[in-house]
Simulated assay, not measured.
Amino acid sequence: MAVAAVTTKPLDPTLHDPFRPMLPFTAPTPKKALPPGRPREWYIAHNRRLKAMRLTIALLDSGVYQPSSASNHRIRRAAERLGIHPPSDLTCRMVRTLIRYGR
């Protein structure tokens, strides 16, 4: 009696990557220039908040719901996967604060 051999392909590791977008990739929209006339510190703080929000969303999507489980190393690894420059300690602290209040 002949038995059919079953072969399976190994799982693609990128399918289980929590930082991989679920939708097909679309080109990012061109960035708008920020309004002129503000002090430099305002722009630095604004960009830091945007970066912290992007990292917080990525961590929440990957299942990190407690600030205590979001170490600086884990946040910097998420930034690396997203293609963002490594965040500073201050930005990592902001990410943990956003996770705390984002639940």
Results as ranks from 00 to 15, higher is better:
Leu98Ile: 04
Leu59Ile: 00
Ile84Arg: 00
Ala58Met: 03
Arg49Tyr: 06
Met22Cys: 00
Leu90Gly: 14
Val64Trp: 03
Pro36Lys: 06
Ala5Ile: 14
Thr14Asp: 09
Ser62Glu: 02
Thr56Ser: 07
Ala45Thr: 07
Leu23Met: 12
Val3Ala: 15
Gly37Asp: 06
Pro36Ala: 11
Arg49Gly: 09
His16Trp: 15
Asn72His: 07
Phe19Tyr: 15
Glu41Arg: 06
Thr26Arg: 12
Arg38Lys: 10
Asn47Gly: 00
Pro30Met: 05
Ile99Arg: 01
Pro24Ala: 03
Pro30His: 08
Ala45Ser: 09
Ile84Val: 10
Arg49Ser: 10
Thr91Ile: 12
Gly102Lys: 09
Thr7Gly: 09
Trp42Cys: 01
Lys9Ala: 15
Asp17Gln: 08
Leu34Lys: 06
Arg54Glu: 10
Ala2Gln: 15
Lys9Ile: 14
Arg100Phe: 13
Arg77Ile: 11
Arg81Asn: 10
Tyr101Phe: 13
His46Gln: 03
Ala52Phe: 04
Thr97Gln: 14
Ala2Arg: 15
Gly102Thr: 08
His85Pro: 11
Ser62Met: 02
Lys9Trp: 15
Leu55Ser: 04
Asn47Thr: 00
Val3Pro: 11
Pro39Val: 05
Arg93Glu: 12
Asp61Ile: 03
Arg54Pro: 00
Ala52His: 01
Ile75Leu: 08
Pro18Glu: 08
Ala4His: 14
Ser71Met: 01
Arg48His: 08
Met94Val: 04
Thr56Phe: 04
Leu98Pro: 05
Thr97Phe: 12
Ser88Phe: 10
Met22Leu: 11
Ala78Ile: 04
Leu55Trp: 04
Leu15Gln: 08
Ser88Gln: 07
Ser88Glu: 10
Pro86Ile: 07
Pro36Met: 02
Arg76Val: 08
Tyr65Gln: 09
Ala45Lys: 07
Leu59Cys: 00
Arg103Asp: 05
Thr8Tyr: 15
Lys31Tyr: 09
Ala79Lys: 07
Pro30Val: 09
Leu55Lys: 02
Arg77Lys: 11
Asp61His: 09
Gly37Pro: 03
Arg93Thr: 08
Val95Asn: 02
Pro18Thr: 02
Leu11Tyr: 11
Ala58Lys: 02
Arg93Ile: 05
Ile75Gly: 03
Val64Tyr: 04
Ala4Trp: 13
Leu34Ala: 06
Gly83Tyr: 03
Gly83Thr: 06
Ser71Gln: 00
Trp42Lys: 04
Pro87Glu: 06
Pro13Ile: 04
Leu59Ser: 00
Met22Asp: 06
Thr14Pro: 00
Arg49Glu: 14
Lys9Glu: 15
His73Ile: 06
Leu98Gln: 10
Arg49Met: 11
Ala78His: 02
Leu98Ala: 11
Pro13His: 04
Phe19Ala: 04
Gly37Gln: 05
Glu80Asp: 13
Pro28Lys: 03
Ile75Lys: 05
Arg103Cys: 04
Met94Thr: 07
Asp17Ile: 08
Arg77Asp: 12
Arg76Pro: 07
Arg81Lys: 14
Ser62Val: 04
Asn72Arg: 06
Lys31Gln: 13
Lys31Ser: 13
Lys51Pro: 00
Met53Pro: 02
Ser88Thr: 13
Pro36Ile: 05
Pro21Arg: 10
Lys51Asp: 02
Thr26Trp: 08
Met1Tyr: 15
Asp61Ser: 12
Ala70Gln: 02
Ile84Ser: 02
